[in-house]
Computed example of a mutant assay.
Amino acid sequence: MRLLPAAALLALLGAGAAWYLTAPSPLPAEATAGLTGDATQGEAVFWAAGCASCHMAPEATGDAQLVLAGGQRFATAFGTFIAPNISPSPEAGIGGWTLAELANAMTRGVSPGGAHYYPAFPYAAYSKADLQDVADLKAFLDTLPPDATPSQPHELGFPFTIRRSLGGWKLLFLRDDWVVTGDLTPAETRGRYLAEALGHCGECHTPRNALGGLKTAQWLQGAPNPSGQGNIPGINSASLDWSEDEIVEYLTSGFTPDFDSAGGHMAHVVANLARLPDTDRAAIAAYLKKVP
């Protein structure tokens, strides 16, 4: 009978340890202290990170794509995620957020209220972002039109509704180290930053395991579409036999060497990257040719 109290104590200690280990882990307060954002620089970060592609209203076109009202639906094996309003509205969007709160959301996946965000928001990639870029991004976001559309709750079933469990997911999969390492040229290093961090290319082009973590050993080798419809192609050096110039042309115009054109979500990616300097698209191309 003495074993029962001991087992109960061990269970209690185990639960306490799990609760502690899965707690949200925000940035230290000093991480963003003294940073001042530049909206002009932030616009480039905005396009590189693809913010409008997910957070504009469904079917928005033209200037309406800068109204980040949210509402787009993203179906996955875990449920349907609905992009939230990230316009500068202080009530419905993120207009009342501080820089520290935006940095915690983007690089740690932690909400202003101290809860875990779902990794459908690609903070696993943004965790590598330079905090100055986050400051610049916030400065640009603050210039965009506010919108009062309320964010909608995600459509998830149990147990995916337990946000605390995401702390365990982060322990397993949230890293701030680079996938491609070694001796890189300045252009390849810049391309790595754009592709692995801001552009979060791996989120779509890398397969995932049963828990939704990226299989980094198969980096950019292609993956099933999360919607269940078809596959997303590989873009590593073995999968993509285009030259660097052909990759740059695709990221600029959307046209492939075979005169096909980008469609679906990739059309938004191309439209975003086409707004970046030519040197950035060339850097991405150099990086992709470096991916083993």
Rank of each mutant, 00 (worst) to 15 (best):
T22L: 14
A92L: 06
L211Y: 12
G16A: 15
P58A: 08
I82K: 02
G182L: 12
S243M: 05
F173Y: 15
V45T: 14
K170G: 07
T252Y: 02
A7Y: 00
V270N: 03
M1F: 01
A238S: 07
K289F: 03
H265N: 12
G202R: 07
S111M: 10
A31E: 12
Q41S: 14
R2S: 07
V291I: 10
T143K: 00
T216V: 15
N85P: 15
A120S: 13
L214F: 01
P58I: 01
N225C: 00
V134Q: 11
F259N: 14
G191K: 10
A217I: 02
E246Q: 12
A48F: 03
N209D: 15
P226L: 07
A23K: 14
A274C: 08
R108C: 02
L184F: 06
D63C: 07
G222T: 07
L240F: 05
T22P: 12
E246M: 06
G79W: 10
L4H: 02
F160Y: 14
A129I: 15
D130N: 12
C204P: 09
G16T: 07
G16P: 15
S87C: 11
K290T: 09
L12F: 00
G42R: 12
L102N: 09
G264E: 11
G264D: 08
T279S: 11
M106P: 01
L171V: 06
A11L: 06
V67Y: 04
P292M: 04
L99A: 08
A29H: 10
D136M: 06
H268I: 00
V67T: 15
S239M: 09
A39H: 09
R208A: 09
G62M: 06
S151R: 06
D241Y: 00
I86C: 00
R73N: 02
P233W: 03
I284A: 12
W169I: 08
A69T: 09
S89L: 02
T61D: 14
P146Y: 00
R190E: 15
P146Q: 03
F160G: 01
A285S: 13
Y20T: 13
L131C: 08
I235A: 03
S165A: 12
I232P: 05
E101A: 14
D176N: 15
G213L: 12
W97C: 03
S261R: 13
E244I: 01
G191R: 05
L220R: 03
Y123W: 09
P26K: 04
P224E: 11
D142T: 10
A49P: 01
T181S: 14
A125H: 08
G230I: 08
R164L: 10
L273S: 12
A49Q: 03
E30M: 08
F259P: 01
H116Y: 04
Q152W: 05
R190A: 06
V45I: 13
Q132D: 10
D258V: 00
G199Y: 05
L141H: 01
T40Y: 07
A15Y: 14
K128H: 13
M1V: 00
L66F: 12
I284K: 02
D183N: 07
L214W: 04
D260W: 09
G79D: 05
L156S: 02
T80R: 01
D133R: 07
G199N: 06
G79T: 10
